[in-house]
Every structure is written in structure tokens, then in C-alpha cells.
Nucleic acid binder design. Structure first.
Lengths: 227, 227
DNA sequence: CGCGCGCATTAAGAACCCGTAAAAAAATCG
DNA sequence: CGATTTTTTTACGGGTTCTTAATGCGCGCG
């Protein structure tokens, strides 16, 4: 079943451009001409991805994003004019996942859409993952270390799964918080500090000098398997 | 099919010089003697690249750039006399991608044109970039040098990403500052000096004599990969 | 030649972020 | 219902990163 994409855009020209570009790729497209309709359509159609213009006539696209983020983690891509630098950043902070600056080409649009959908849809990449003496089976939700079973709490495991899904890549604080605690806790970074410590105590040979579960100061964390 | 290049230039001498230099390389050339015609021709011919003189008789070349940028992402190269320092920067901030200062040689012209066309042809989804012994993976937010991992702080990486997004072309101080520090710091150019030094220390084989991360005095910086 | 401008370079204090521990609150389970 | 586990809060010390200011250099210009 092809993914559904919600397009919230007031200018008919751009909206039709989006519809035909995305439609040609096989996506199903739902169009909303303003913010109010956008929110309703988001709730009704439960799309796999939303593309939201920041310069909407009735109310700010950021409002739409905030409201959607209250109940959904669907990927949101923001459209912004070159002038709206500031609100672009606000949008990302409000929970948008990516942005495209107008004017933009079909190639760029489709590339961003693919990335966003891939990130959202992916089940924990492989079913197995191992590093050092640790082995994790995501399907069975179990892990062993030196053959001994390790126990994870629900949150610990979700956090680990989220990191493993993006193995080797940095996962931002916001992504982790959003994925594990939901959109309402996207700024409670102290949760991460506590749980990273617990994961390290369970996974790392020397928890004080992490080798697999690495910190990216000011950005997020990342999990790396051995070389 | 050879790329089409639009030349918006009032002085016949320079216009003919451009036509023959570009024509000899196999490009198709469309000439416009003033700004008004330039805009029309841009819409009609949909060229792959526009070269716009800043000192046009009817109205400012910056107007032309702004108007084109409302509907197109085609690369735009600006021609400026040495006196027009200020408007050169305005042009870049308005969406031009690169500039050439008059007088200029064929070699410089063709090099800039090649870079701009190559840049346009590649979807910005490009996740990888390499120059010298350095390799950067933007998706994973990682970089290596001679196989060794290099560590970047949050700001360093954002700066590098911004430069890489416009590989081979100039990025103005203002653009960099806005993208990395936000609009409130658009004039704090001293930040750039400090961080450029750090990037060079991490990326350049000989940081004192930069080969990739180049200074454009009075304008901004430019990242070039080796050819 | 001396001056001013913009850039490179350095260093130090401020601000911020992270790891850590431990207690309080909530949820789970027998 | 009480015990145990899990989650949420809070606090603080140490370390990293960011900001700021001072200095030196090279170049163009008067």
C-alpha cells in the first residue's frame, strides 16, 4: 500500500505542483488549503507524512505542527520562503523533521520525502545486533552479555531500539525523546542522561569510558558496533 | 543535450565575449541586453544557468535575481565591477550563487560555470563529500581523515554543512551566520573567524595555507573539493 | 611610509551540557 | 494491599563548548 502524504498549502500553484510530483511517484496525496483544514485532515486521514507551508493564510504553520505533535509522531516537512529563516528554526524546534526552502525542485522534494518516510517506517533494521560481548535480538526483545541474559525495562529497550535503528548515525535528543516518551516531552533531556547511564551500565565493558554508546555533546547520542 | 546559459549584460563588448567563450565550449547561449528582457528570457527559455551583470541600465541586477528566485533554483552567477562591492554581497544574499569580478579571464569564467552546473545537476541529497584525505557523511553526521574519525562540535558541523551545501560556491558571512547562529547574530563576523580556524585545523593538511576552505575577503567563505 | 581595515590566531572566562547518585512518585505484580 | 520494580525529579560537580577580547599580520590607500 503506497504511503499517504498530506499537503497543507494555500497557494494553488505550489499545491498542484506538489500533488503532481508526489502523485507521479505513486504516493497518495491529500490536499488542505489552510491550517484549520490541515489539522482536521491530519486527524481524519492519518497520513504517513505531512508537508506544511509556514506561510498559511489563517494561522501559522507552526500552530499546525504543534497541534499534530500533540498526538502524532508522523514525519513533518516544512516549506519555507527564503525570508522566513527565523520561523524555519522555530518550526524545527516545534517538532518538524526537515525543511525545504522555496523555490525547490522535484528532485530535492522527493529525496526529502523518501528520507522522512524511511526514518519513520523502519522497524529496527536487522533483527540482531552485536558488539563486544553483547548480543541483542530485537524481534524477541532479548539480549545477552557473555551468554548471560540482560534485562531491560520498557523504556530502556525502546531507547536502545531507537539508537540501533540508526546504527552509526547520530540521533538527536529530540528524536529520541519523541520516539520514546512522545512529543510532549521533547525538551526533557534529563531523561536521556539518566537512561543513557543505565544502558551503559548494562552494555559497556567500562561504563565510564563508553565505547559503543557515544555522546555527541549538544546534539544527541549514537550507537556504534565494533569496527 | 548541451546546457543553455542566459547572459544578461548591457555592454555589447562583454556580452559578445561571453557568447563566444561559452559558445566555444558547446554551451547554448541566450543573450538579453537589459533586466526586463532578462526576466522574460529566463521564463521563456528556462536556461540551466544565468549570468547576470549587476550594472544594468534599466533596473538593478538584484531585482532580476529576486524575481528569478521566486520561481526557480537555477544557479545564478553575478558579474560585478570592483566598485560594486556592496551590491555584490547583496546579490549573493538575494540568492545568487557565485560572482565574478570584472575584468575576468575565460578560464575563471568557465571554471565557475562548470562548478555551478555540476552543483545544480546533483540533488542536494548528496550524503557524502570528500576532499583530500577527508570524508564527510552528513547523514550520519560523521567525518574521517586518513581513516581516523574527526570530532566536530555542534556549531562546527553546522558551519561545515552550510558550506558543503553550496560546494564550490561562495557563501556570504550573513548566510553562514544566519544559518548557524540565527538571525540575531547576522553581523557577528568574528564568530566565523574563530570557527573557520578550528575547521581548518581539523580539515586542512596545512591549516595556514588553506586549500579547501577558502576566504573570500569582504564577502564570505567557499569550500572546494579537489578536481 | 604610516594608517586603517579585515582576517588569523590565541587564550581565558562564562555558559552550558553531561554524568552521576539518590530520593520521591508511580506503576506493576503477587 | 504491600513489596518490588520502574519511572520521574532533583541536585551538583566536572568537563566541554561557546563567547569574547586582545594581539599580530598583510594589504591597499592616502
Amino acid at each position: 500500500m503506497s504511503p499517504t502524504i498530506l499537503v497543507v498549502e494555500d497557494e494553488p500553484e505550489i499545491r498542484h505542483f506538489l500533488r503532481s510530483s508526489l502523485g507521479a511517484e505513486g504516493y497518495r496525496v491529500v490536499e488542505s488549503p489552510n491550517g484549520r483544514r490541515g489539522e482536521v485532515d491530519a486527524g481524519m486521514h492519518k497520513p504517513d507524512l505531512a508537508i506544511v507551508d509556514l506561510g498559511l493564510p489563517d494561522f501559522d504553520g507552526i500552530q499546525v505542527i504543534r497541534h499534530i505533535r500533540e498526538w502524532s509522531t508522523m514525519p513533518i516537512i516544512v516549506l519555507s520562503a527564503r525570508i522566513q529563516e527565523r520561523s524555519k528554526i522555530d518550526a524545527l524546534d516545534s517538532g518538524a523533521d526537515d525543511y525545504i526552502t522555496k523555490p525547490f525542485g522535484v528532485g530535492e522534494l522527493l529525496a526529502r520525502v523518501r528520507v522522512a518516510l524511511r526514518h519513520a517506517a523502519q522497524p529496527p533494521a536487522g533483527k540482531e545486533l552485536s558488539f563486544g560481548e553483547v548480543q541483542i535480538n530485537f524481534e524477541a526483545r532479548r539480549a545477552t552479555r557473555d551468554g548471560e541474559e540482560i534485562h531491560f525495562t520498557a523504556i530502556e529497550f525502546r531507547l536502545l531500539a531507537c539508537l540501533a535503528k540508526h546504527l552509526g548515525m547520530v540521533v538527536t535528543h529530540r528524536q529520541l525523546l519523541q520516539e520514546v516518551w512522545g512529543p510532549t516531552h521533547a525538551q526533557d533531556t534529563h531523561y536521556l542522561r539518566v537512561y543513557m547511564k543505565q544502558l551503559r551500565d548494562k552494555l559497556e565493558p567500562d561504563p565510564v569510558r563508553p565505547r559503543y554508546l557515544l555522546t555527541e555533546t549538544g546534539v544527541g547520542y549514537r550507537l556504534v558496533a565494533d569496527d
